[in-house]
Write a protein that binds this DNA or RNA. Structure first.
Length: 154
DNA sequence: GCCAACGTTGGC
DNA sequence: GCCAACGTTGGC
């Protein structure tokens, strides 16, 4: 099993929205590297940190789980969607996504400052300079460390 | 709202 | 294939 982190602006869709909705298709990703992680890397059952970006505070807010593997992102075909891609057709889709289901909302957000301050997390892609991906991998070691932080065990 | 750091686009 | 211009992300 692999571990991941996905970013969402909580004003648009937060961990609490996911809790209410139970599951959601992760549509709207329009970056090739992030798409490739969803298309080629993410398998059913993989666990995902739900990261709140552009938030007060920004940080990891909870855990989700991949409930459906790669499939075309329907918003690319929707002329009324802000994510519409005129180059994509149902026969030749460009953008794929996964579906995730709610697992847990942390009692407090693990802030970006906390993540940056933890020596054990220095290899976490999120805290490395210049990483702006909205979907990225998390190592097993880092995953366990962050879960400990979230559950107050550190 | 600012701006640094990237990614994408398009002219050549 | 280069690279300037532009757009986007996202922390602060």
């Amino acid at each position: 099993m692999n571990y991941w982190l996905m970013k969402s602006e909580p004003d648009v869709f937060s961990i609490h929205d996911l809790k209410r909705k139970r599951k959601t298709g992760w549509d709207g990703v329009r970056n090739y590297q992030a798409r490739n992680y969803m298309r080629d890397g993410m398998k059913k059952g993989d666990l995902v940190f739900f990261y709140h970006s552009n938030a007060e505070p920004s940080g990891i807010a909870g855990i989700a789980r991949v409930s459906k593997e790669r499939h075309p992102d329907p918003s690319q075909f929707d002329a009324n969607s802000e994510y519409h891609d005129p180059k994509a057709t149902p026969e030749k889709p460009i953008w794929e996504m996964v579906e995730v289901e709610f697992m847990e909302a942390f009692s407090h957000v693990i802030t970006l400052a906390e993540l940056k301050a933890a020596p054990a997390l220095k290899n976490l892609p999120l805290v490395q300079k210049g990483t702006r991906l909205s979907v990225m991998p998390v190592g097993e070691t880092e995953w366990k460390e962050i879960v400990k932080l979230a559950h107050g065990e550190i």
